[in-house]
């Protein structure tokens, strides 16, 4: 076996996997804290990429600033979506919420097609075509950035949930919403910033992955699919689970595609879900209800 190719495939897999982790973290937060399965999560990823594109081309800002603005704007849109759809429905049946999120996904995706046009676009980044040689492995600066920025964002999210006052309120809400409300925690506020955090992360991943591929209004489908595979594998509501499952999925896809067949790459994710659900029905890292 050619070691150079092997190392390259592992590196490809880790970068792709880290992007999955970033998408899945928001998805798992919303589920873990609010018990909401948000099918529209991928659309916030799409919006993140598009807003980065438009801020870059229309306002002429540089890529990093555009990505940051996009994350903030989409976090705001997340709050709006929560206020208009998920908060009013919080006492309804889970299926009602799930179907509403599906409706929201279709609305945003088709609205995007009308607003942004059907033609594919490319998010310009100064790092996209600059190649870095790390030993025998070749990566573009952008792909290194995807990995590094995701690591920073995940550490920040972890510290936030673990140590900040808001994070503690989130964990309390995850464990028992009624109990949390009784102790004086503002559940409405927890809803709002959980959505802001989740959608901001989705947008950040869209902004980071954008320059490595082309963007078009239906890329959200891809994002939410990968996100769900990772979340189910890692355990619904588990942030550490999402981290390991995402990286694992990325590497296994890349090795499977590289050494078995590319045709199987898509199937690998689904096969892994089945295997995990048979072996550990609550996901790899799931123990009990709550946010971990």
């Amino acid at each position: 076996m050619d070691f150079t190719v092997f190392a390259q495939q592992i590196a490809n897999g880790l970068v792709n996997g880290m992007a999955y982790v970033l998408i899945a973290t928001g998805l798992t937060l919303v589920f873990g804290v609010l018990r909401i399965v948000n099918f529209a999560h991928g659309e916030f990823y799409m919006l993140g990429a598009y807003i980065t594109y438009f801020v870059g081309t229309l306002l002429g800002l540089d890529y990093i600033a555009a990505a940051a603005i996009s994350a903030v704007v989409v976090a705001g849109l997340g709050i709006a979506a929560n206020r208009l759809i998920f908060w009013p429905l919080r006492r309804d049946h889970e299926f009602t919420i799930l179907l509403s999120s599906l409706g929201l996904a279709l609305l945003i995706a088709n609205g995007g097609e009308l607003l942004f046009g059907a033609d594919p676009k490319y998010v310009e980044s100064p790092f996209a075509d600059e190649v870095l040689d790390i030993g025998t492995v070749t990566l573009t600066q952008q792909r290194v950035l995807v990995f590094a920025a995701a690591v920073v964002a995940l550490i920040a999210v972890y510290l936030f949930i673990r140590y900040s006052r808001f994070g503690k309120m989130m964990r309390a809400t995850a464990q028992n919403p009624n109990g949390a409300a009784l102790t004086g925690i503002n559940i409405k506020l927890v809803h709002a910033y959980t959505f802001a955090l989740a959608c901001g992360l989705a947008a950040l991943s869209g902004a980071l992955v954008g320059p490595t591929v082309m963007i078009f209004p239906t890329i959200g489908n891809w994002a939410v699919l990968k996100g769900f595979i990772v979340v189910i594998m890692g355990g619904l509501g588990s942030v550490t689970g999402a981290l390991f499952a995402g990286l694992l999925l990325g590497v296994i896809e890349s090795l499977g595609g590289g050494y078995i067949s590319l045709g199987f790459m898509e199937a690998i994710g689904y096969a892994m879900i089945i295997a995990v659900l048979l072996w550990r029905p609550h996901g790899l890292f799931s123990t009990a209800r709550g946010l971990r």
Binding site: Q8, V213, M214, I219, S254, G258, M265, E266
Partner: peptide, 20 residues
């Protein structure tokens, strides 16, 4: 040769193989 899928968005795996 490599065959990629019509739904793929990233091609680094296939291209790494082809480059080699």
């Amino acid at each position: 040769h490599e065959f990629y899928n019509r739904t793929d968005t990233d091609f680094t795996t296939a291209l790494t193989k082809l480059k080699s």
